[in-house]
Amino acid sequence: KRPMNAFMVWAKDERRKILQAFPDMHNSNISKILGSRWKAMTNLEKQPYYEEQARLSKQHLEKYPDYK
C-alpha cells in the first residue's frame, strides 16, 4: 500500500469533522467539499501536510525498500 499524499493526510481528519457535523452526507459530496477546501488553502497552510507526506514516504521506503 502506498503512503498517503499531502491531500490524503489533511483530508483524513477533515472528513471526520464533516461527518460529525453532517452524519448523513454522502461520501461524494464530502469529497467535493474537501477538494474545494484544499484548493482554497495557501501553500503555507498546506506545508505541514507536505512535510507529513515526506515523513510517511521516507518511512515507507525504509520499511519496503523494494516497493515499486
Rank of each mutant, 00 (worst) to 15 (best):
L44G: 11
F7E: 07
I30G: 00
V9I: 14
A54W: 05
N5L: 02
M41H: 02
K63C: 13
M41W: 02
R37F: 05
K12R: 12
N29V: 14
D24C: 05
K1N: 15
R16K: 12
D66T: 08
S31P: 04
Q47D: 03
P3V: 04
E14G: 03
Q59V: 10
F22E: 14
K46T: 02
P23A: 02
Y50T: 05
S36N: 15
L19I: 14
L19F: 05
Y64H: 15
H60V: 10
K32I: 08
Q53D: 04
Q20K: 08
K58N: 10
W38R: 00
K68A: 15
Y50A: 05
R16H: 13
A54F: 06
D13K: 08
L44Y: 07
R55K: 07
F22K: 04
W38M: 00
Y50K: 04
L44Q: 14
Y64I: 14
L61F: 10
Y49M: 02
A11R: 02
R55M: 08
D24T: 10
P23R: 06
N43K: 15
N29H: 11
K17M: 04
E45T: 03
I30S: 01
Y67L: 12
I18Y: 05
N5R: 03
I33M: 11
D66Y: 11
K46D: 01
N5T: 13
A54N: 07
I18S: 00
L19H: 09
Q47T: 07
Y67W: 12
E51T: 03
P23S: 03
A11G: 02
A54V: 06
L44F: 09
Y50W: 04
N43V: 10
K46R: 08
M8V: 08
M41P: 02
S36G: 10
E51G: 03
L61G: 14
Y50D: 07
L56F: 08
P23Q: 02
I18E: 01
W10G: 01
L44W: 08
L56G: 08
H26S: 15
K58T: 12
K39S: 12
L56W: 04
K58L: 10
S57Q: 09
R2I: 14
K58W: 05
K39Q: 10
R2M: 07
E45I: 03
R55E: 05
K32P: 01
L19Y: 04
K58P: 06
K12A: 11
K68T: 10
A54H: 10
A21P: 00
M8H: 14
E45A: 05
Q20I: 10
E52A: 12
G35H: 13
K17G: 02
N27G: 13
K39V: 06
S57F: 08
N5F: 01
K39C: 11
K1Q: 03
N29P: 03
S31A: 13
H26C: 12
S57W: 06
M8N: 15
D66G: 11
Y67R: 13
Y49W: 07
E45D: 06
R16G: 11
F22W: 10
E45S: 02
D13G: 05
F7V: 00
K39M: 05
P3Q: 13
M8Q: 15
K58D: 13
A6G: 06
R55P: 04
L56C: 04
W38F: 01
K1L: 08
A21L: 12
D66E: 10
S31W: 14
R15L: 09
A11D: 00
L56A: 10
K12L: 09
F22M: 08
G35T: 15
L19D: 03
F22T: 13
R15A: 07
S36Y: 08
Y50P: 00
W10T: 01
R15I: 09
Q59H: 11
S28T: 12
P65M: 08
M25T: 06
W10I: 00
A6T: 02
L19S: 09
Y67A: 14
Q59N: 15
K58C: 07
Y49A: 04
Y50H: 03
E14F: 15
A6N: 00
S28P: 06
M8G: 13
Y67I: 09
M25R: 01
E45H: 02
G35D: 15
P23M: 00
A6D: 03
N29F: 03
A6L: 00
L56Q: 12
K12G: 07
S28G: 09
F22L: 08
I33H: 03
Y67N: 15
P48A: 08
M8T: 14
A21G: 06
K17I: 06
D66K: 08
F22I: 01
I30A: 02
K12S: 08
R16S: 13
A54M: 08
A11P: 00
H60E: 14
H60Y: 10
S28E: 13
N27L: 13
Y49P: 04
Q53I: 14
A6R: 01
P48C: 02
Q47K: 12
Y49Q: 06
D13P: 10
Y49G: 03
A11E: 11
M41Y: 00
K32N: 06
S36W: 06
R2P: 11
L44D: 15
Y64S: 14
S36E: 14
P65Y: 03
I33E: 14
P48N: 05
K46L: 02
L61Y: 08
A54K: 11
A11W: 03
Q47L: 10
M25L: 09
A11Y: 04
Q20N: 07
R2V: 14
K58V: 09
K58Y: 07
K17W: 01
R37M: 09
R2N: 15
K17V: 05
G35R: 14
P23V: 00
P48I: 02
K39W: 03
R16E: 15
Y50F: 10
P65R: 08
Q59G: 11
E45R: 03
W10Y: 07
K46V: 02
K46I: 01
P3K: 15
F7N: 05
K12F: 03
K1C: 11
A54L: 09
K39L: 04
E14V: 12
S28F: 09
S57Y: 12
R37V: 05
H26Y: 02
A54D: 14
A54G: 05
I30T: 00
R2D: 08
R2W: 02
P65S: 07
G35L: 12
S36R: 11
N27A: 13
S36Q: 13
D66W: 04
I18P: 00
S57C: 07
N43D: 09
R15T: 09
I30M: 05
R16V: 13
N29M: 14
E62M: 05
R15Y: 07
L19N: 14
W10S: 00
R2Y: 12
L61E: 14
I18D: 00
P65Q: 11
H60S: 10
M25Y: 03
